[in-house]
C-alpha cells in the first residue's frame, strides 16, 4: 500500500448515520488501525436510494451528481462508499453521464443552477469492500489480525448491488472476495448458495409478503449450511435480515436467531478492537451467543468423502 493511496474521499450515506451506525463506527475504527484516511465529502446529500429514479430521471441523476461534483471539487479522485445502494447509484450516475452525452448535458445544466459542474469519470467510485481487498490486500489485513475468528462459521452475503450490474471483474453470481477476506480473519466460510440473492430491498416497507419471503429464504439457507452468522456489506441487507427477523419468524412460524453483522465489525473484532467500539450490540438479533464461540476452536467433522471406485470425477478447474 503506497503512501499516496491511503487517503480516500468517503461517502458514508444516510444509513451509516442512523440505522447502520455500527457499520460507520466499525469502518472508522478499522480504517484507523489500517492507517487509512477517510475524508468525508463535505455536505453530501442522499443518493436517492432506489426511490428517486422511479419518479423522474433527470432530478434523480442530478441529486446524485451533486455529490460527485462536490467530491471532485474537494479534490478527491477516488470516493469510497460502504453502502451498496449508494455505491451503485453513484457509479450509475457517473457511468451513464459518461455514456450518454444528452444525459450529461442535462444533468450538468441542472447542476449549473447550483453553481456546480461534474465531468464524468473525473471521480473513481468504489465500494469499501473492493478497496479493502484490492488496495489494502489480504496479506496486510492478515498482518493486523490479533484475535482470529477461529471456530466461527460465517455465511458471506454480498447482496445484489456490489456485483450487479457493474461487475468490475467480480463474478456477478458467485463472488469470492468477501469469503476470502473472512478466511483471512480466521473464520470458516460456508458455501452459501444465496450469497448474491436479494434481501427484499425496500419491499419490507411496501409489501411484507414479498420481502419476508426473500428474507426467509436467506435465513433458511444460511441455517441449512450451519452458519453461525451472516456477514454483510450493505446497510439495507443488514437491516432487512436483522430487524425483520422476528417478524419473519412470526409470519412463517420459524425460529431463526441468526445474527447479521457488517464485515467491518468482524474485521474490528479480529484486529482486537473492543466490541462496543465496532458497534456490537446494535443488532436486533444478538450476536453474543455466536461470538461466544470465538477462540473456542471447534473440530469440524471431516467431510464425508465418497471415494469408492464408482464415483465420477468432478469437473476440473
Amino acid at each position: 500500500m503506497s503512501q499516496e493511496h491511503n487517503a480516500y474521499g468517503y461517502y458514508p450515506g444516510c444509513s451509516l448515520k442512523a440505522t447502520a451506525h455500527a457499520y460507520g463506527d466499525s469502518t472508522e475504527r478499522v480504517a484507523e488501525v489500517l492507517g487509512l484516511t477517510l475524508n468525508e465529502v463535505a455536505d453530501w446529500n442522499c443518493c436517492g436510494a432506489t426511490e428517486y429514479m422511479s419518479l423522474s430521471a433527470i432530478p434523480a441523476y442530478s441529486l446524485i451528481a451533486r455529490n460527485l461534483s462536490l467530491a471532485a471539487a474537494q479534490g478527491h479522485q477516488e470516493m469510497i462508499s460502504p453502502c451498496s445502494a449508494c455505491y451503485l447509484n453513484l457509479r450509475k450516475a457517473n457511468d451513464s453521464m459518461a455514456k450518454y452525452p444528452a444525459l450529461n448535458e442535462k444533468v450538468n445544466r441542472a447542476l449549473g443552477a447550483g453553481g456546480l459542474h461534474y465531468d464524468p469519470n473525473s471521480l473513481h467510485i468504489r465500494h469499501l469492500l473492493d478497496m479493502m481487498v484490492e488496495d489494502v490486500g489480504y496479506e496486510t489485513i492478515a498482518e493486523h489480525v490479533t484475535k482470529p475468528l477461529s471456530g466461527l462459521k460465517v455465511a458471506c452475503y454480498y447482496g445484489c448491488l456490489i456485483v450487479r450490474p457493474r461487475t468490475d471483474g467480480y463474478n456477478p453470481e458467485y463472488p469470492m472476495h468477501l469469503d476470502r477476506l473472512m478466511q483471512t480473519l480466521g473464520a470458516k466460510v460456508v458455501d452459501f448458495p444465496l450469497k448474491t440473492h436479494c434481501c427484499g430491498g425496500h419491499m419490507t416497507q411496501i409489501s411484507e409478503e414479498t420481502a419476508f419471503e426473500l428474507i426467509r429464504r436467506l435465513l433458511h439457507n444460511a441455517a441449512d449450511y450451519g452458519a453461525d452468522m451472516i456477514v454483510t456489506v450493505c446497510p439495507m441487507c443488514q437491516l432487512n435480515l436483522d430487524a425483520y427477523q422476528p417478524q419473519v419468524n412470526a409470519m412463517f412460524g420459524t425460529n431463526y436467531e441468526i445474527p447479521i453483522l457488517f464485515f467491518t465489525q468482524l474485521m474490528g473484532l479480529a484486529f482486537g478492537i473492543p466490541a462496543r467500539e465496532v458497534g456490537m450490540g446494535a443488532e436486533i438479533t444478538s450476536a453474543a451467543p455466536a461470538l461466544g464461540k470465538i477462540g473456542h476452536e471447534e473440530m469440524e467433522p471431516a467431510r464425508p468423502k465418497r471415494r469408492d471406485k464408482k464415483s465420477l470425477p468432478m469437473p476440473q478447474p
Binding site: A20, S62, L63, R66, A110, L111, A113, G114, L116
Partner: peptide
C-alpha cells in the same frame, strides 16, 4: 439506529436550485 430528528445538509438552497432546474429540464 433511528434518529428522531432529521439530519439536514448545510447548503439546502443549492440542492433545491439544482432539483428545481432538473425538474424543469425533465
Amino acid at each position: 439506529r433511528l434518529n428522531t430528528a432529521p439530519d439536514r445538509i448545510h447548503d439546502m438552497p443549492q440542492l433545491t436550485a439544482i432539483l428545481t432546474e432538473a425538474k424543469r429540464i425533465a
